[in-house]
């Protein structure tokens, strides 16, 4: 039995990495989505638009720039899935949740910053996504993406 394991060490290591990547990745993703949805519901009252907005004279007390960002990477399992998908073409489902999570998290962090500073709304939201490091499919690379959200937080003069 031990001989079999040592003889096929590379194969077993690969399968182990796959299993670890899959289980940890799935658990982390579920937990993250749960927290995203909870916080989204909490912050839903904070108005967020990507229009510039026009304000009447004297309506605005203060305005400032807020931003939020997140760098995420895929797990071993999903990366393999993406590599395989690369061959056949089509929808790369393995990356859908990754980007979705990163972007929603970035917006949430921006909103949290705005709320902490007492803003009533965020106008002119801009979103950006960029890859950090080398391409995700190359070997030995730390492939990851950054989602950035920024906008202008506005504090109104409220009676």
């Amino acid at each position: 039995m031990l001989e079999v394991i040592f003889g096929n060490l590379d194969l077993f290591l690969f399968l182990l990495l796959m299993a670890v990547g899959y289980s940890c990745g799935t658990i982390a993703e579920k937990r993250h989505y749960k927290s995203i949805i909870r916080r989204e519901k909490e912050l839903i009252k904070l108005m967020l638009v990507n229009a510039e907005g026009h304000f009447a004279d004297g309506a605005v007390n203060n305005s400032f720039l807020v931003s939020g960002s997140m760098v995420v990477s895929n797990d071993y399992f999903k990366r393999l899935l993406a590599i395989l998908r690369n061959f056949f073409g089509g929808r790369v489902k393995a990356y859908e949740t990754l980007i979705d999570r990163a972007r929603r998290e970035a917006i949430l962090r921006m909103k949290e910053e705005a709320k902490a500073k007492g803003a009533h709304m965020i106008v002119n939201l801009r979103l950006e996504t960029s890859t950090i490091g080398r391409s995700a499919n190359k070997k030995n690379s730390v492939g990851s993406i950054e989602a950035l959200a920024y906008g202008t937080a506005v504090v109104m003069n409220r009676p």
Partner: peptide
Amino acid sequence: PLGELAWLV
């Protein structure tokens, strides 16, 4: 994802 893996593999 596991279903997709099965299809791809």
